[in-house]
């Protein structure tokens, strides 16, 4: 099982990076959204809350543009039959989960410096980085099962956003309010927020494993 999961992780990374199309489009989307926000703001001083909202909305929509592909590709290229045949569903899901977390983390690594630099936010402390990391993880981990659902429902990117937003609202709320407190310079409860985000991701990932076979198997 462990070896099978490792084989799936290696396969997902190899396939996605050999035809870099989807990965590079997602990266370009993240960069362009960040730049367009800063161009539109044009150096105007924004309130901390507005910064927090813009930053997390960019992360959320970058996730929505990039995270469904790992599942929709299998359905579009018809390789899902091979996966159903040779692998237990848990191995398939684990590989996709790992890939999506790495992918959104990479996107956040593009978004965050661009945002901080072009919108003159200044260098953030470790608190902000810890929050950004756990928020990114929470979004990627809890939307992976939704990506599987979207792939089975025709793979429309818009549908992914529609079904993810209500589920991810608590994550966005916590991330935005804590980020805005940090930017205000006040004493933010980063540890509490990170704990909340981890609990949320843990609950959703646990449920995802229970549900995945129902979503994945063919009628």
């Amino acid at each position: 099982m462990l070896r099978a999961t490792r084989a799936h992780i290696r396969k997902d990374f190899t396939v996605e990076f050999r035809s870099r199309f989807a990965v590079s489009v997602a990266a370009a989307f993240a960069a362009i959204t960040t730049l367009s926000v800063s161009l539109a703001a044009g150096g105007a001083p924004l309130a901390p809350l507005v910064h927090a909202i813009l930053y997390w909305i960019i992360v959320f929509f970058s996730a929505m543009s990039g995270l469904a592909h790992i599942f929709t590709r299998e359905e579009e290229e018809g390789t899902s039959l091979l996966l159903r045949l040779v692998a237990p569903p848990e191995a398939v899901f684990t590989a996709k989960l790992v890939f999506n977390c790495a992918m959104l983390f990479a996107l956040a690594v593009i978004i965050t410096p661009l945002y901080l630099f072009f919108l003159n936010v200044g260098l953030p402390g470790p608190g902000f980085l810890a929050l950004a990391a756990s928020g990114t993880f929470a979004i990627a981990a809890s939307s992976t099962v939704l990506a599987a659902i979207v792939a089975r429902a025709g793979g429309k990117a818009a549908l992914f956003t529609v079904i993810s937003f209500p589920v991810l609202l608590p994550v966005l709320w916590i991330c935005i309010s804590t980020t805005s407190t940090i930017l205000l310079g006040a004493d933010a409860d980063v540890a509490g927020s990170a704990l909340f985000l981890l609990a949320f991701s843990g609950a959703l990932v646990a449920v995802s494993y229970m549900l995945f076979e129902h979503i994945w198997s063919e009628e």
């Binding site: 084989a7 091979l82 045949l85």
Partner: peptide, 27 residues
């Protein structure tokens, strides 16, 4: 063991990689 026209292989993997992926996956 199943072979079918509906079964698609990964175009981006080489034949050798496909073989090791499938074999490892099947144990």
């Amino acid at each position: 063991g199943f072979a079918s026209p509906r079964l698609s292989l990964y175009g981006d993997l080489t034949a050798g990689e496909t073989v090791s992926f499938v074999c490892t996956s099947l144990g």
